[in-house]
Design a protein around this nucleic acid. Structure first.
Length: 592
RNA sequence: CGGGGUGUAGCGCAGCUUGGUAGCGCGCCACGUUCGGGACGUGGAGGCCGGGAGUUCAAAUCUCCCCACCCCGACCA
């Protein structure tokens, strides 16, 4: 039993000024957490209780799924991460430190290497696989910008698991097992979620999905369909391809002088003012009729670079995230002035398909948006300064080298699954499942002996759930203007029992007795036994703390047939229950 | 890392323009009165005014530098 008179707790009437989002404000106001460091929080008794409840649900579901719990140090030597290249790859996000002998260490951001090495150490035969292992552990990432309370911190608790299988079918099964476990887990945490595809096809066969809790305060944007249940990351969504248009009867392309039109906006305005440049159908030109061409430099992991030209409708921006997802593992860098000097065919600001493509002047690979299909006519750069070409038609006047998903996705774009409108939404990433393949096993030389005596390299999956982040997401999803509203299984108690009476009163005697009876009946009781302070203070605190059921021992006690007020925190519904029945009643309420 | 904002008591804030002994509300301590929706009275405790340098007889206030935090963006297996 937690007694408020002794509990190490102070609630705040006002939220700290640096807390912006509801979960952060309420968790601090209710005395669950305190900020202790940039991107780091301390847990107070009630907060730690809630944390452990979340952790235990995660643990329970992982155990049920058949994965086994292990535990690693967070403080690790450089070597394994050097072997896989992540000591450098992780960049500034890795916390690095040096021991007294000058050896490099890191605070682990994730543990693929260590799990791989553990399996390498223990498993020698194909008979030892498949196996899935997990840990619940503090992770460290030197985030550029911690924010939003517990949602993005530099030290956080993550459940990370890893599967080791002999073949792709086994990996698929392990992946599906984790996916199912996560679905059960998030339902049990009462966290709303959507599952979004997280990768485009460029990474080969590897598959990855994110579990997002759809909330405005989330920092991941994703695309969801307004009519079917399609959801995907912006990187993973594909643009429905329109049908090719017939080329017969289309006007010939024509080059025009277009002085003073450095932007799409000024260009459209200019050509609409000149009758000789009318569209074939008589309508005004719009930005969507223009073809904007952009050149970037791809930097491959082996250090080589390569230019890439991207053509998209002029009413859209290029989304660098999408480009990077497509060209990964290459990095994308802007095309600089020096680069332009190397390609005199490119006239900055007036680049058109005429200069692009492997068969044209520059020889630069030219990929276009999927909407740019055969038979579509465009206004685009004429590859001469201050000139544009009108009615340049795809498949007749130019042929791109291929398509690329590079254009920004917008509200109202078409759903690849059903063709309805999609919308952009935000969510909190609460889980991520990932088919890694053999990258780590190969890098760290993990193999087991097969049935035929030959070595087999296991294929891996990695699966993460942000435990502390989930807690914040639950708080965010389950609160109102006056406080938190915990799902029962996460709540620090089943019943918040309020003694609304003076020291030495009948209320006090009854509440003391009732608290003991409730606990004996198996309920977790948070007992506000404070003798000072008005009832109003206790009611406000009970609402702020968010225990799902509040029972008040107050003036109902003075009646001939004494009653206890039982209140549902979420709905606000209250009822008077006869004292004689209240234990039974509360047991029932808490079981439902 | 770029843009914007804020640093004054545990929390929320005023004071800064125009330099002159640091204030308010909540919370905290003591006593008394209250006791079903954040009670009231009286008396208290608590601050290197983010840090450093400068200007000045005098700096929370003016100047410069630094730091921290928050928001937007970039970044985020």
């Amino acid at each position: 039993m937690l007694r408020m008179s002794k509990l190490f707790l102070k609630t705040l009437r006002e939220a700290p000024a640096d807390a912006e989002i509801a979960s952060h404000q309420l968790l601090v106001r209710a005395g669950y957490i305190r900020r202790a460091a940039p991107g780091g929080f301390s847990w107070l008794p009630l907060g730690w209780e809630v944390f452990r409840n979340v952790e235990n649900i995660v643990r329970d579901e992982m155990n049920k799924a058949g994965t086994q719990e292990v535990h690693f140090p967070a403080l690790l030597p450089r070597e394994p991460y050097e072997t896989t290249g992540r000591w450098t790859e992780y960049g500034d996000n890795l916390f690095r430190l040096v021991d007294r002998k000058g050896a490099d260490f890191l605070l682990a951001p994730t543990h693929e290497e260590m799990f791989t090495l553990m399996v390498k150490d223990i498993a020698g035969s194909y008979k030892d696989l498949p196996v899935s292992l997990y840990q619940i552990q503090t992770k460290y990432r030197d985030e550029a910008r911690p924010r939003a309370g517990l949602l993005r911190t530099r030290e956080f608790v993550m459940k990370d698991s890893y599967s080791f299988d002999l073949d792709d079918a086994g990996l698929d099964a392990s992946y599906a097992m984790h996916r199912d476990a996560y679905i059960t887990l998030f339902e049990r945490l009462q966290l709303p979620y959507v599952i979004v595809s997280a990768m485009s096809g460029a990474m080969g066969g590897s598959k990855s999905e994110e579990f997002l809790a759809p909330m405005e305060v989330g920092e991941d944007t994703y695309i969801r369909c307004t009519s079917c249940d399609f959801a995907a990351n912006v990187e993973a969504i594909t643009t429905p391809v329109p049908d090719d248009q017939p080329l017969d009867g289309l006007r010939a392309a024509e080059i025009h002088d277009t002085p003073g039109t450095p932007t799409i906006g000024t260009l459209v305005e200019f050509i609409n003012q000149d009758e000789s440049m009318r569209r074939a159908d008589g309508r005004d030109w719009s930005a969507a009729d223009t073809l904007k061409n952009l050149v970037v430099t791809l930097k491959h992991p082996d250090g080589t670079t390569e230019p890439l030209a991207i053509g998209i409708p002029g009413d859209r921006e290029v989304d660098m995230k999408r480009v990077e997802a497509v060209v990964a593992p290459a990095d994308v860098e802007p095309f600089g002035d020096d680069d332009f000097k190397q390609y005199p065919a490119l006239k900055k600001g007036y680049i058109g398909p005429g200069a692009l493509g492997s068969s044209n002047a520059s020889g630069i690979r030219y990929l276009v948006d999927p909407r740019i299909v055969t038979g579509t006519a465009w206004v685009t750069g004429a590859d001469e300064y201050n000139r544009h070409v009108i009615d340049l038609t795809t498949g007749r006047d130019f042929t791109p080298d291929g398509v690329i998903e590079a254009a920004e996705v917008r509200d109202g774009d078409l759903c690849p699954a059903c063709g309805s409108d999609v919308e952009i939404a935000r969510g909190i990433e609460i889980g991520h499942i990932f088919q890694l393949g053999r990258k780590y096993a190969e890098a760290l030389d993990l193999w087991v002996q097969g049935e035929d005596g030959k070595p087999l390299t296991p294929t891996m999956g990695s699966y993460g759930v942000g435990v502390s982040r989930c807690l914040a997401a639950v708080a965010e999803a389950h609160c109102d203007d006056i406080g938190l509203v915990w799902p029962r299984e996460i709540s620090p108690a089943d019943v918040h029992l309020v003694m609304a009476g003076k020291d030495g009163s009948e209320q006090q005697r009854t509440a003391e007795k009732l608290a003991g009876e409730l606990e004996a009946a198996g309920l977790r009781v948070l007992f506000d036994d404070r003798v000072k302070g008005s009832p109003g203070v206790k009611f406000k605190d009970a609402e702020l703390l968010g225990v799902p059921t509040i029972a008040i021992v107050g003036r109902g006690i003075d009646a001939d047939e004494p009653t206890i007020e039982v209140k549902d925190r979420k709905s606000g519904d209250r009822e008077d229950v006869a004292l004689a029945n209240v234990v039974e009643h509360l047991v029932e309420v808490c079981a439902s």
